[in-house]
């Protein structure tokens, strides 16, 4: 059995079983079952409102699920003490859809925020570390002194990526990493994601509805529809999976089993 940074090859890095979540009468997750292998990159696909982001937030502990199991490295996170949960979160990095950079802090402080918060680095050393991590995402060290509001959308994404990887996590979540970017910048971000995930040997979970991006960054893919996982397979097979819903979604076809609820 091959040992990885956390857990073993036979233990899924993340396992979801029967995950349910409702907001009022609206059922968002209706029994999500999913396993994510260590060191693999999983892409979760789905339309708007299908439950992708809520799934991610449940795994991160930002939203408590109503029912179901979430295991990270074989440990049920619901049974963890506050400190143990914080230790699990310490090993997680997250790239938010809109970057979610802190407006009140310069870029270098955003990048090294976690290291500074944990007291793992001095403020002086954080500047050098930020320059090093910014270089990994193709940004000059001088960007570190800028405010997030001075950055373009693509640069904000790259700074967000730098912040997600600065503490060298072994699980990284990417929430719609290419949304709002032009196709070339989207490909650049995807390339960076693939590079950093490989370099860190991390497990990656991305949620997207960008098919080109899903094929580029994913080893495995799963599709969520109406709060349930309706398919999972290899990301490279997207568009030719044999599942009518997934293929319709991957090809962006109007006609098919997935019907948009449009008022006429």
């Amino acid at each position: 059995m091959i040992s990885t940074r956390q857990g073993t090859m036979s233990t899924p890095k993340i396992r979801l079983a029967g995950l349910r979540k409702s907001f009022g009468s609206k059922v968002v997750l209706d029994g999500v079952d999913l396993e994510i292998r260590p060191g693999h990159s999983m892409v979760i696909l789905g339309g708007s409102g299908s439950g992708k982001s809520v799934t991610l937030k449940c795994i991160l502990g930002l939203i408590p699920p109503d029912e179901g199991l979430i295991e990270i490295d074989g440990r049920d996170v619901a049974t963890l003490s506050r400190r143990e949960r914080e230790e699990v979160n310490d090993r997680i990095g997250m790239l938010f859809q809109n970057g979610a950079l802190f407006d009140s802090l310069p870029v270098w402080e955003n990048v090294c925020f976690k290291l500074l918060a944990q007291g793992r680095i001095s403020r002086r050393a954080a500047r050098d570390k930020a320059a090093e991590v910014l270089a990994q995402v193709g940004l000059a060290a001088s960007v570190g002194d800028l405010s997030p509001s001075e950055l373009s959308g693509g640069m904000q994404k790259r700074v967000g990526l730098a912040r997600a990887i600065a503490a060298e996590p072994d699980i990284i979540f990417f929430d719609e990493p290419t949304t709002g970017l032009d196709p070339i910048m989207g490909a650049v971000i995807d390339g960076l994601i693939v590079d950093v995930v490989k370099r860190l040997g991390a497990t990656a979970v991305s949620i997207t509805h960008d098919m080109a991006s899903a094929r580029r960054i994913g080893d495995d893919a799963a599709m969520i529809h109406k709060g349930r996982i309706i398919w999972r397979g290899e990301a490279r097979s997207l568009g030719d999976t044999g599942n009518a819903m997934v293929d319709q979604f991957a090809r962006g076809e109007r006609e098919g089993p997935i019907q948009m609820e449009l008022r006429k």
Binding site: L62, N89, A100, L101, D103, F113, K114, Q118
Partner: peptide, 20 residues
């Protein structure tokens, strides 16, 4: 306004994911 903007732009969630 400051904390509300942080809430709607996911900055508060980001704090949680950054061990804070």
């Amino acid at each position: 306004a400051e904390i509300g903007t942080m809430r709607v732009t996911d900055q508060i969630d980001a704090l949680s994911t950054l061990s804070t």
